[in-house]
């Protein structure tokens, strides 16, 4: 037995062990620090007025009501418009296209859109919508919709592919046309998974800021007019954090806390749905 070689191998192994444990500690420490700050700063900024008052000038106790409402309105619109498109497209890929060249092509572009920078999406909507109709809640929702679609397409396809082929065959054997089998057998079997995908998409857009800056533009006042500029939570955080006022900073932290809380809740619910399915 070559003891020098053996000792060296053991040493490398020890160093490797130390490296990967410290990597894990390093990563987890930063992430814990972020959550800790968010919790302390965010909770101290939270108060009832945050949810009952709209944004106001610095010094007078304002809240985030208009921003929260704006975010909700745009997210709902984006999901309402993007989900059907995403589910239908995902259905095509999983049920009709499968391994054809066209499906591969669409899948490829969808995956690129899935991780494309959101600011690019904002520029796209600016060029197409804002340039013609001006800043509006609809433009903001449209940019969020472009982000929702690829997420839903991806998860829908994955979930439909998990449905066993024998279910489809059983439907077809009863004489049901393909479109019927898809709608009343496959979709139904994959429902939990598709809902998970939609929840993940909501989580993804609820923190999106970049595309909203030049589509929804922001609005200091309460507004539910879809054709007018509208406030959104991430954008208020962006503006307030960059301001010089302490009470605006506090509101920005409160907003960050609300968003993170919402996103984490959504992902946990999505996760629970998924584990229940398995």
């Amino acid at each position: 037995m070559n003891s020098v070689l053996y000792a060296r191998r053991r040493l490398t192994d020890r160093l490797f062990l130390i490296f990967s444990i410290s990597a894990a500690l390093f990563g987890l420490a930063w992430l814990a620090a972020i959550l800790y700050t968010l919790l302390t700063q965010g909770l101290s900024g939270l108060s009832l007025t945050v949810f009952t008052e709209s944004t106001k000038s610095p010094g007078s106790h304002g809240g985030l009501l208009n921003a929260i409402a704006g975010s909700l309105v745009m997210s709902i619109l984006a999901v309402a418009a993007g989900t059907p498109i995403g589910i239908l497209a995902g259905t095509y890929l999983a049920e009709y296209g499968r391994t054809t060249r066209l499906a591969g092509f669409i899948r490829f572009f969808n995956d690129i859109l899935l991780s494309a920078p959101s600011i690019i999406v904002g520029l796209f909507i600016y060029e197409v919508v804002v340039r013609n109709f001006g800043f509006s809640a609809i433009a903001g929702a449209a940019s969020l919709m472009v982000i929702v679609i690829p997420v839903v397409v991806r998860t829908t396809e994955n979930m439909l592919l998990l449905v066993p082929g024998s279910l489809r065959e059983a439907g077809a054997a009863l004489g049901a046309p393909i479109s019927h089998v898809i709608r009343s057998v496959t979709w139904r079997a994959a429902r939990a998974g598709i809902v998970t995908g939609v929840l993940l998409a909501v989580a993804r857009i609820s923190g999106e800021t970049a595309p909203l800056i030049f589509t929804a533009f922001g609005n200091q006042f309460w507004s539910t007019d879809l054709t007018a500029p509208i406030a959104s939570l991430p954008q208020v955080i962006f503006n307030y954090a960059n301001s010089a006022y302490d009470d605006w900073h506090r509101l920005a932290w409160a907003g960050a806390f609300i968003i993170t809380f919402a996103v984490l809740t959504l992902s946990i619910v999505a996760r629970l749905l998924e584990s229940k399915r398995n």
């Binding site: 993804r204 800021t209 960050a256 968003i259 993170t260 946990i268």
Partner: peptide, 21 residues
């Protein structure tokens, strides 16, 4: 799970934390 959840935290939160902390 913690790591996967943290991958979902919006970038604006990282931004505000980065600036102040």
């Amino acid at each position: 799970t913690a790591i996967e959840l943290l991958a979902g935290i919006p970038s604006i939160v990282y931004g505000i934390w980065g600036m102040f902390m």
